[in-house]
Design a protein around this nucleic acid. Sequence first.
RNA 1: GGGCGUGUAACUCAGCGGUUAGAGUGCCUCCCUUACAAGGAGGAAGUCGGGGGUUCGAGUCCCUCCACGCCCACCA
Length: 1048
Amino acid sequence: MATELPKAYDAKAAQEKWLTFWEERGYFHSNPDPAKKPFTIVIPPPNVTCALHMGLALNHTLQDVLIRWRRMQGFNALWIPGTDHAGIATQAVVERLVFAQEKKTRHDLGRDELVKRIWAWKDQYEARIITQLREMGASCDWRRTRFTLDPVCARAVRETFFRMFKDGYIYRGKRLVNWDTHLQTSVADDETDTVETKGGFWTFKYQVVEKEYLGDELFGKPVYEELPDGTIVKGDTLLDPDAPNLDATQFISFSTTRPETMLGDTAVCVHPNDERYKHLIGQYVLQPHTGREIPIIADGILADPKLGTGCVKVTPAHDPNDYACWQRHPEIGIINILNLDGTINEQGGEYKGLDRTKARDAVTEKMKELGLYIDRADRDIPLKISDRSKTPIEPLLSDQWFVKMGDFDSAVACGVAGNATPQATKQGLAQMTMDAVTSGRVKFYPDRYARSYLDWLGEKRDWCISRQLWWGHRIPVWSKRFTERGVFNFQRKGLALMVPAGTDAAFQFQEDTLTIHVALRADDTFKADLEGNGYKQSEDVLDTWFSSALWPHSTLGWPGPVLPEARADRTAPDWEKDQSYYPTSVLVTNRDIITLWVARMVLTGLFNLNEIPFSHVYIHPKVMDGFGEGMSKSKGNGVDPLDIIERYGTDAMRYGMAKLATETQDSRLPVSNVCPHCGKEVPVKQEHMYMRTKKLACPECKKEFRPGGPWPMEDTERPTAKQGSDRFEEGRNFANKLWNATRFLLMNLDGYTPGAIKLEELPTEDKWLLSRLATTTKAVTGALEGYHFSDVARLLYDFVWSEFCDWYIEMSKGRLKDAAARPLAQRVLAGVLDGILRLVQPVMPFVAESLWHALNETASERGLPAPAKAEESVVIAKWPSYPDAWISAEVESRFARMQDLVKSVREVRNRYQVDDKTRLDVSVKCAEAVAADFNALATFIGPLAGIATLTAGPTATKPKQAGGIVRPEFEAYVSLAGLIDVAAEIKRLEKQIADKRKSLEGTKAKLSNEKFVAGAPPEVVQLQRDLVVDVEKQIAAMEENMRDLESA
RNA sequence: GGGCGUGUAACUCAGCGGUUAGAGUGCCUCCCUUACAAGGAGGAAGUCGGGGGUUCGAGUCCCUCCACGCCCACCA
């Protein structure tokens, strides 16, 4: 007797047991193997600050499904895990923590100390993330765990930066950054929030002054206009050189939401075709606070005649649009009026030192005094706020490093010494990156996402890679600014000679500021030389995406050689060998980072290796809350996967995630709070968002609890609810169903002997099952190949539950009791279950492994069509495939008719709840009447329909179609009319008959339409004809039933 | 403003040109039958967002309108 399994699947026990088992056996570790084709995935590295959330759970589950499946298919499957240092987010978290605990800012700590603290923090959180990943069953090669700031990645960053710098792809430029005046750092666009704020909309005027024209210098400037298709053209000057001079008392009015920026105005701007102002173009106005005389220029892109007064002031240093305008009209000049702390600098004259908000009032007041103030209106203005400090962002002009994305028309002046790598291409990086997708080398699934990738790259906007932070890869550039051109030129000529042999250094010479920039490939003696000569390394670090962009090849050890690995549980990558894993197979991620990350990985892959980083990009949906909103910490609507795992089990969570992964871009996950007192599920309501609700009363037990969510603090008053979601019940139930199906088999395996089967000798129900197994296996494999994870889950569920369990197992019960039929039934059951466990493993590895081992105890040799020794673990078992010849439409349709019959009998039994004896009589009579049609299958109708005994009779009858009841059954039960509600039954029948008639009419109309008969495929026409016959019969039968009822 | 997506049963979703539109959960009835109550059997529940069109045939393709969501630009 086999060991009997417990009655229900214990997810927790299985999870603990098999995680250890798998890792001890080293199934997830991969080494290069010339005999096996590699299948590689690099994980999108989660931020070290990140707690596990449902989006990650989805992402990781899908990758693991692919990896486990390919591993079974015999690929050399490698999944590289790791984490991202996530520059600003991480630094911000630690800074906040330090401040909360020690009341110290980063300036108090200093750079080295802060970085040290962040490393400590990182170690702790990285460990947490890795643990959570493990617990989800992720079959990563943990020995290859990487971090974007570790030495392996750092070297790749250094190498890439150096190559790009040397080739002139990286250059020094100016950019308006979002400046956080509180934290005194720049922040990326996605680290800001835009909030509607009550503000003002001031209208002022500037007086036009008499001034000598700059003549052609200004008049000759072309006018810029944006055409409807978005292109910007340089038009002819619209100005009439003989334009009348103006009278001295003229004014030009404009509006602003930020009056203080008037201090930095360098022009006012109108539309070239605006008749109101045409004559003023080329004149000057007086900026009263600073006394500057600034020109009136024409720019059709910046000025919109329909907005405001049609005239706009231009503050290039403090507004992105104005900045763009300045780039088109550099002659107007650019004036920065802000200090880094948000106060006005010396350019603001008498306003120097004032905070920008105070300056705003003062500047406005002055305009009033001068009679230049027109009015002020209240207006809600979108105010950019820093996510971290919650203070307003100031656009500020600053020097930054950029990667040039556009086509390579003019190289940046640079020089090289040492062993520079020959560059791959001088093609524009953006174009090259786009070509990889348009040529089909990189494919998106679903393909619509290729569009966002191409559209974004098509703008060819340069990539600003410097960040004013301390946490990250410090920019490996040493710069020195010279005060005299002669010295600058001298140094410029002599620099290459200073470089010691064996050192790789590259130079860029910035003419306008007399600055020399030196990039070093590695830290060596030359670094000390430079520093000794007054060169200073950049204080900035690289954009965090710069290092993640290299992830697919940096994690494999590019550019080599092997670096020493400090940790015993890690293996250093060896590019020499590991490059066989590159390019990787598929990248699995969500649509938010197609541009930020995916595009840049393609870019660096092509730049560094002249090879794409992956052939497929699979974009999965985003997990939304129950109201269709994205989950986020600030909304407090996130769901903790650990709650889900605890409540439903890991397999259930994974199944739920797979089921969620359809082709749409969003998928909702409504949750409920599980009352910690009584277990009642209380649905989460929208007003519970943003953690506004601190306590809830359970509608069941009336006790209070705190709703679940990412609360920063413990609640000492009342317990916090865990969250649940009925979307995971399906998976939990499914795992349990698998468990019990196996349990059933194990209880019936006494005397099991392995043996081959011959399809043609099998009974019909076996043929049916194998047909379904072969079909399902094929479909599941196909769905995986196309990344249709939801279909995978559904196909498995339907086959296992609705076919294998509901029908086949029930049918096998009789045969297992019959000594003659028993061995074959056991072989088929064991063989099919074996296939099921293999198919289920990628999605639900824990339950699959538990059952695999249980089955191995008594039936280690099994399989179809011929048995084989089962592998020691389903993780490394072979992915199944069955002969196409097993698939039989004929068998399946015969079986379907039998199923219809059984359902019909069951329906009768269920609808008329009479005493057992009567029900039995009726059922037997029904079954007898219909069974004869089905030969061997007839044997099962009785048991399946819940009838104890069955004697097959000769009466044959057409089986019912769904919804109708065959005639003999009806005769049987109508004789019991006294026991049933005749009136209700008549009503039901009337409705049914009416429905049938309606559908019949439709079908007949179709058939009498010549075009249909001629145009539709013959089998469709035949189907319709058969349908008419069937439905007519049904109606006739039902009408007869009606008459019987009426007379009863 | 541009792009993308979504409106199908009470809820979450399948169905993507061809029989009488499906599943899970929830609901109702019956059943603790020796694999499984995390279960079994049955049932009720849908003018497939509105309006046009193409087609022999339209949740399914096209146009349009409405509602919702996401992303990107812009708002002097």
